[in-house]
Design a protein around this nucleic acid. Structure first.
Lengths: 245, 245
DNA sequence: TCACTCTAGCGAACACTGTACGCACTGAGC
DNA sequence: GCTCAGTGCGTACAGTGTTCGCTAGAGTGA
């Protein structure tokens, strides 16, 4: 047994585990889970690893969280809190407002690459408060643009599906990239021979591969991804505008 | 200890494991994996459960497959083999061809609901032969429609992103539905009170909820999903056509 | 026929996983 | 002081993916 604490503990010699508040809480757990996921990816998240990060045992977490699946749902909604959606828009700037929303959503996914690997499991069936807030705003923007209720809902679903689909595949590529430990250009060049081999019997794919420049700086690769994303987004917005006219 | 086998085994009492051919093969493993996934979902797929289904031990699989992740990638590409893409199309029917492709892709995902939960992990970084075949054809259709190489690639990415995003969220909902064991209408009605509660502070969401009919037959629910999917698809195709004009 | 190599399959083992259960402790209210 | 609810944790269980070294048989060449 260690000796008893002095009656008046100094700031330097206070008990290591200062039990100020309940110490563990849903909020703290979820925040730390997101931190862990961001840093080390989905495979690194285990109840034990998260517990030790919080200075707690693994099973203590279950007092605040029903299961690992629920924890992940909470982490997903936590991340949705970062989303920036214009509070409202008029019939003239709905397009800009939606584009900004889409950009913010994509950036959110790319900031948290693990998001891609769980979005399919948790689906959007789980309706966290943050996600509801953003849905409501997007519906508002579309309503102000002139869409009726059910069409606004469909337009929103389409936008979200496009952005998540696009960002998901980007994030999956970034995950591969991170695990390879290589530079993006290096990795691309390393994969090139296999790709050229596989593409031999596919004329259109081959034509595309032939057209893409062989050596590109990192910034060019990133810009190309931005353009890829923007292209489809603009086509979808064009289609929606055409619907209004 | 069970008694030894008789010296001359009859047809009825021959060793259970008749070793005809190599018995295990990459192909057989992948096919059975897809069957298992379709029947019992992603959580039911373990190397041991798959092994026993094939009348083999878990570790035997590793002679034919490098890891569980690789197995899943193979299963994904196997499923891509079901995709039906028109071999070619002219400048007048590219839109119909793309719509058919999109429908086939969506149907494929819904036939294999586990697909949604792995598509984010494996991404589209993995380029299996079946997926390359379909990419090549889609690029061909878009090229014939009048898009240049890089724009065709962007259009294809957008289409696939939209369809997968949409189908993924549908499949996730279907997964929840299947696990609940309830009828879709029942489950919706069961969730309604919580949804109305959560929606209280969100006027636009509330308006949408108010507009959706309370009691719908299963066929109506399915038709509504089809329409949701079609709406975004048509908007995207509109945007692409507008780009050509 | 023998000896040799090669390979598919397997059993045991390892390091982990998510989670159920019951005990220990703490602080609040009476 | 006593009770009681709530918080944390140690142990345990059933299961995971994967490694390693063994076995039994097929194929090959002499």
């Amino acid at each position: 047994m260690p000796p008893k604490q002095p009656a008046v503990p100094s700031v330097w010699t206070r008990p290591r585990k200062e039990r100020e508040q309940p110490a563990l809480s849903r909020g703290r757990i979820v925040t730390e889970a997101v931190r862990l996921l961001d840093a080390d990816g989905i495979d690194a998240l285990s109840m034990r690893s998260l517990g030790t990060r919080l200075g707690a045992g693994a099973t203590s977490l279950y007092r605040h969280v029903a299961s690992k699946d629920e924890l992940i749902e909470l982490a997903v909604d936590e991340v949705f809190g970062e989303l920036e959606v214009p509070a409202e828009a008029g019939p003239d700037d709905w397009r800009a407002a939606l584009a900004a929303t889409a950009g913010s959503l994509r950036a959110m996914v790319l900031r948290h690459p693990w998001f891609a690997s769980v979005v399919g499991q948790v689906g959007l069936a789980f309706l966290g408060p943050n996600m509801m807030r953003m849905s409501d705003r997007v519906l508002g923007i579309l309503g102000a643009a002139g869409f009726d209720v059910t069409e606004a809902d469909r337009a929103m679903k389409a936008l979200v599906a496009y952005v998540l689909g696009m960002a998901t595949s980007e994030a999956a590529w970034l995950n591969v990239l991170a695990q390879s430990g290589q530079d993006e250009g290096e990795l691309l060049r390393a994969l090139m021979p296999a790709a050229e081999q596989a593409v031999r019997d596919h004329p259109h794919l081959r034509a595309f591969y032939a057209a893409v420049p062989r050596q590109e700086a990192q910034s060019d690769l990133a810009r190309r991804r931005d353009e890829d994303f923007d292209y489809g987004l603009q086509r979808l917005l064009d289609g929606l505008r055409h619907r209004l006219a």
